[in-house]
């Protein structure tokens, strides 16, 4: 199964949750938001969100700016 996280292709052997996808990038427990195929998914729903083949995941956080 292939999913795209922040523009990079990831191969997953089994179905993974959004929580697991985010953990591939960061262990931060706060300050992070995620969207799947353009739709924002609330953090409380990450565990229950199963990613499907071809899903596009965006994981954002705050950086220096403005």
């Amino acid at each position: 199964m292939q999913i795209v996280i922040n523009g990079r292709l990831h191969q997953a052997a089994a179905v993974i949750s959004l929580t697991q996808a985010v953990e591939l990038l960061t262990s931060a427990k706060s300050g992070v938001a995620a969207a799947v195929n353009g739709e924002i998914v609330r953090r409380s729903a990450w565990d229950a969100t199963r990613l499907a083949d071809g899903d596009q995941v965006e994981v954002l956080t705050a950086v220096q700016g403005g």
Partner: peptide, 10 residues
């Protein structure tokens, strides 16, 4: 204080 929002950089 302002911050910007960008993709997580591992």
């Amino acid at each position: 204080t302002t911050v910007a929002m960008r993709r997580v950089d591992p």
